[in-house]
Design a protein around this nucleic acid. Sequence first.
DNA 1: GCCAACGTTGGC
DNA 2: GCCAACGTTGGC
Length: 151
Amino acid sequence: MAKWLVKTEPEVFSIADLKRERATSWGGVRNYQARNFLRAMKVGEEVLIYHSNTEPPAVVGVAAVKRAAYPDPEQFDRHSEYFDGKSTQENPRWFSPDLMFVKEFPTPVELARLKAERKLKAMPLLQRGSRLSVMPVTADEFKYILRLAGA
DNA sequence: GCCAACGTTGGC
DNA sequence: GCCAACGTTGGC
């Protein structure tokens, strides 16, 4: 089973929102590399939730894949900011899985902390200039981050 | 198909 | 608010 990490801006959608809603469609991703990772997610796989563009940026908890990726309906909605005129029902471009809340860390693992860990230095999240919003995490990295969270 | 211009991301 | 990094767009 693969492990994953997804970024979200807490001002837009936070882990507290996910906790309250129990599950959500992880939509609006409009980057091909990230899209490919979303499509590779399988039901039951675990996903680290990362808060970006906030102070401090941090891994804040865990979700799980509830439903494998399906075409993101917003790409067909002319009034959505995620509308894509080049997508068709027959040939959708963008996909979103459903993610469900698993747990929120009592203590978030801050970006500065992740950066200080040699074992995590290969994570795309920590690469200079990486803007990838969905990425795979190795089993070791996943375990290690849970340990840093005291979870 | 190249590549400059532009927009976005996201840490700081 | 700044700006580096990167992806996308569009003229040619």
